[in-house]
Simulated assay, not measured.
Amino acid sequence: MISAREVADELIIAERERKKLTAFTDAHPDFDVAEGYAAQRLFVQSKVDAGEQIIGAKLGLTSRAKQVAMGVSDPLYGMVTNRMVAPAALPVDLAALIHPRVEPEIAFLLARDVTAPASITSVLAATEAVFAAVDVLDSRYNDYRFALADVVADNCSAGRFLLGPTARTPDELVDLRLLGCVLRVNGEVVDTAAGAAVMGHPAASVAWLANRLGECGEVLRGGWLVFSGGLTAPIPLQPGRTVTAEFDGLGTVSAFA
């Protein structure tokens, strides 16, 4: 069986050199999700050792459709560092990424720790602000082809994150389950969604993460940004393409290159 250290080392090189990898589970089918999280911790620690700071977390596979497609019943999670948050007003630096894809999300800025057992209610009570966001995914695997353990090790395809300019408390918005999003590519509507696309309520995925971390003796920390999961299918980001997410009550955020 390939070790978590070996997996992490290959991912570190792949990200630095913009090199696509073959999924580890192809040659090592016994590489499992638990080992994937062990590799993820080492992958993220390499960023911390290089001077980055962990400022939040991201959820993946939060829609039921995606879970069914991947044969799982729970989301996955990765860590977000300060270097991953990019200015929304500037082009995404494609030269620093491999093959980015964009998906709209609802992001939560936590005012205080969220401890287990967590619920939608406790997450909303701990939330300082909600933002429109864009998750710029960037898998280190060729053609985004991977098994669950692979994508977990790859920090859930974390690339860059863009935040919209408008901050709202949950009380200032409609029910987050009903908060609508329109996704456009170069001005043309390509998809629509509502907050309920994420586990029935976007705060439910944040609560799931708090409970999952609690099982590991960790805490979802106040001050963190939590990206609750994609509302639509991801869109490839290419030169000359602008992907815009328009959110009810939260404004607009665009990714362009």
Rank of each mutant, 00 (worst) to 15 (best):
A111W: 02
R177P: 00
C216W: 14
W224R: 10
L250C: 04
Y37L: 06
P87R: 12
A118G: 05
L110H: 03
S157H: 02
A118V: 05
V33N: 01
L94Q: 13
V253C: 07
I55T: 04
G187A: 03
V80S: 00
K66G: 10
A158C: 15
T242Q: 15
T121I: 10
A204P: 14
I55S: 02
A255E: 10
A111Y: 01
S254C: 07
R112V: 09
A27P: 01
S119F: 10
A89L: 13
A196P: 00
V92F: 00
V123C: 10
D26P: 00
G230S: 15
I235W: 05
Y77I: 05
Q238T: 15
E35C: 08
V44K: 07
L179Q: 05
A197H: 11
R83S: 15
E52G: 05
A50T: 08
L237H: 01
A153L: 02
T166W: 08
S139E: 06
R16F: 12
E103T: 01
A118H: 06
D113E: 04
A158I: 12
V226R: 05
R18N: 14
I12V: 15
W224L: 09
V130W: 03
W224A: 14
A57C: 12
M70N: 06
R212F: 00
A4P: 14
G200L: 01
P170G: 06
P170Y: 03
F247T: 00
R64P: 05
E128S: 12
D26R: 12
L61S: 02
L213D: 05
V182W: 03
L76F: 09
S139C: 04
A27I: 06
A132P: 00
Y144M: 06
L209N: 00
S228I: 11
V182F: 02
D154N: 11
A245L: 10
A158K: 09
A245K: 04
L225I: 11
Y141W: 05
L179V: 04
P165I: 00
T252L: 08
K19N: 08
A118P: 05
G200Q: 05
L90W: 11
Q238G: 02
S157Q: 03
D49Q: 14
Q67R: 15
A65R: 13
R160N: 14
F227R: 02
F256C: 07
R184M: 14
R140P: 14
K47H: 11
A167C: 03
G200A: 09
V33P: 00
D154F: 08
T25L: 04
L61M: 13
A38T: 11
G217R: 07
F247Y: 15
A132E: 02
Y77K: 04
F247V: 03
S46V: 00
L220C: 06
V198M: 02
P91S: 10
V48A: 13
L21R: 00
L110N: 02
S205I: 03
R64I: 08
V7T: 11
L61A: 09
D135W: 05
K19Q: 14
R64M: 07
E10M: 13
R41E: 13
T192W: 09
S139D: 12
A133L: 07
Y37Q: 07
G223M: 08
E105M: 10
L220Q: 06
R83V: 13
G214Q: 09
A257Y: 07
A207Q: 03
A4C: 04
G159V: 12
V130L: 10
D113P: 03
T25H: 01
V226N: 03
D135A: 09
D74I: 11
A147C: 09
R221M: 11
L183F: 06
H201G: 09
L173I: 10
